[in-house]
Design a binder for these strands. Structure first.
Lengths: 369, 369
DNA sequence: CGTAGATATGTCTGCGCAGTCATGACAGCG
DNA sequence: CGCTGTCATGACTGCGCAGACATATCTACG
């Protein structure tokens, strides 16, 4: 081929040899300087860097990748959603990758895509990524993860293994879900309803399991599970159905968005949160403290998870022979705000429960003790 | 170097020549088939594809990029935020790029980063991207955009030009902000306050300008501008200050998150939305319909913007000589929900306005960040 | 002072593709 | 029938870098 030129046929971009000539050294020495190798004298290093700067030299990563067999790129398989959790995780991954000197190549798989995660992984391998991050895996994902490069699964509980070269990092969602549920039980609620995420998501199943564990541990009844799709709209829809039950005093929603939709539906049905029904969310989205009532929720340390996961992945990339490390699990927090309270005195149902309060002229029921 | 092998020293990945041999053709013919070139007989094409499939062949994109001078990769400079707008834009860009056969390389610049957007652009050029997307530009960004590859600036009004090879795509935020402001004026509010985003953002300045235009066009007073940082927390802080003013009947917030925080603060101050104060947001985040009161806001068609922008960018990449196309601008919507209403009867202030409702038992303490 | 190691640099080569050009085979047409 | 053009394929080459190996020079130490 002909060397790269500007659209106008301008001068070609300078190459390593050009820098070498300008600095009076060999191309190989330029390569050494640029890669920070040992055994380069300070004088040569300085001359090379000067020359590179003067010529406006930029390393050609394609050539480097071809010659070295490594691309210093990490592929990310993300779900095509703007949800706070996945988006935060992606942000954290990018920052951690950049800090480690890796670029990021992102592929989204709208759930149910052609090829799905497997196809995404293939396309990333084709691009020569050195490692792969699968963020918030869903059902079918476990299988294609047998890859020739290390894989980090984010959002699975720490220690999970799904493939030979797979690392998992994430919080212990089960424990978190248990904590959320126990918080409600501790307040005196006879049982806790659950508004789950889509069953295909590991995250949804973990939270469901944690909820079941907490109830089982105290021998409480497990009401039927409502399922949403993480969206506030689905939370609202579920809320309309739940509001019709007269044993409803507490709900643990699998994420904050659904919790907000749920509260909206309960309010529309004339139920007050938290006086009549308590609600706990999951994620602690930035809005959680500012909706009415402020949401009691569970905070996930997305940054820390992304950070730790990526460090482990980079380690696995750069030490192919080493044993796969295991993530520690990250500390986690229950943030108690105002959407939870003890159950109403007559929690055992009763006609009063559904007396419709006159809402005339009052959209927002002010919280009164 | 030695050819790539698995960690275990397993067999090297098959190359084009291997496929060629298996199919009984030359390497060049394999290349032709894989690139969909003309002048390949159906029989040969079939044999090559079969052989490639059988061997599990994957094209080496580094080699292709080196040989062809094109990487089929688009670089994205994003702001390191999980805000709904930027995140949605990024999603749209990824999908559009994938549809066009390009991969995405993402770099975040936490505002105020070392190097900032300029540095990010450099690192992307180094990676050999064929084009660059700058999402939601902020102040200093205009300058370094003189790049040797086409640049798409997303979130600037359509038609903006900031550099020689620059395309802009986005909605007409000014018009949108005007519409939001006029909606409030039409309801009878004497004037409208503005809760702006950070001044460095183009998006914030556009919205501010639109607000000013709408007020000026009707000869209304322009109250001092409150400024937030897009977050609900900053909206809350601004809300506390605004609540102290006795001319406050309507606020146009530059995004929905701040609007939610604002409403929270107003509520805490004993003001009802929309009876005492109307609030309009911007973006129509998925939660907007589910907070109390449901938020009147302005909807941005993020997907359409990303889509159109990326198509233009790809066109510019693949037709280097052509004139730069101009984006059309996208249709847009004011979504009226329940956070806006006519001003209270005695909007001209008066002691009643600030009668403090007894908040005894108020559960909600002012949220700390 | 000789020799083993550490230090510093260079030469040669190949990574796996796509560009360029050459070469056939054949069809259409006067 | 020969010439021109379209179609189909292959040989050769180079993109810009890093790996392998070969020197050289300098230090340390017996």
């Amino acid at each position: 081929m002909t060397r790269a030129r500007g659209r106008d046929g301008g001068p070609a971009a300078p190459r390593g040899v050009d820098v070498a000539r300008a600095a009076g050294v060999s191309q190989k020495t330029v390569s050494r300087v640029l890669n920070g190798e040992r055994y380069v004298s300070v004088d040569v290093r300085r001359r090379v860097l000067e020359a590179a700067d003067r010529l406006g030299y930029r390393l050609n990563t394609a050539a480097r990748a071809l010659a070295s067999g490594r691309s210093r790129t990490i592929g990310v398989v993300a779900l095509g959603t703007a949800l706070y959790g996945p988006a935060s995780l992606l942000l954290g991954v990018e920052r951690a990758a950049r800090d480690a000197g890796y670029a990021l190549s992102v592929v989204n798989t709208l759930e149910g895509d052609q090829g799905g995660v497997g196809g995404a992984v293939q396309s990333l391998l084709e691009r020569g990524v050195d490692g792969i991050v699968v963020s918030e895996p869903i059902d079918e994902d476990a299988d294609p993860l047998a890859s020739e490069v290390p894989v980090l699964v984010l959002g699975a509980p720490a220690g999970t293994r799904t493939g030979e070269r797979t690392i998992a990092a994430g919080v212990d969602s089960e424990a978190l879900a248990r904590a959320a549920t126990e918080h409600l039980l501790d307040l005196g609620h006879p049982t806790v309803h659950h508004l789950a995420g889509p069953e295909r998501w590991f995250a949804a199943r973990d939270r469901l399991a944690g909820w079941r564990q907490a109830l089982a541990a105290r021998g409480r009844e497990q009401p039927p599970v409502a399922e949403g799709d993480w969206s506030a709209a689905s939370g609202y829809a579920a809320g309309r159905r739940l509001a019709a039950r007269n044993d409803l005093t507490a709900v643990f929603a699998a994420n904050d968005d659904m919790a907000v939709g749920l509260i909206s539906a309960l309010t529309d049905a004339g139920l007050r949160v938290p006086q009549d029904v308590s609600v706990v969310g999951f994620d602690d989205i930035p809005l959680a403290a500012y909706v009415r009532p402020p949401l009691t929720t569970v905070r996930q340390p997305f940054d820390a998870v992304a950070d730790e996961g990526l460090r482990l992945l980079v380690h696995a990339i750069e030490n192919p022979q080493a044993e796969l490390p295991t993530a520690q699990g990250q500390p986690v927090e229950l943030v108690v705000r105002s959407s939870t309270a003890p159950p109403p005195a007559r929690a055992d149902s009763g006609p009063l429960r559904h007396t419709v309060r006159p809402l005339a002229g009052e959209v927002h029921a002010p919280p009164a003790a």
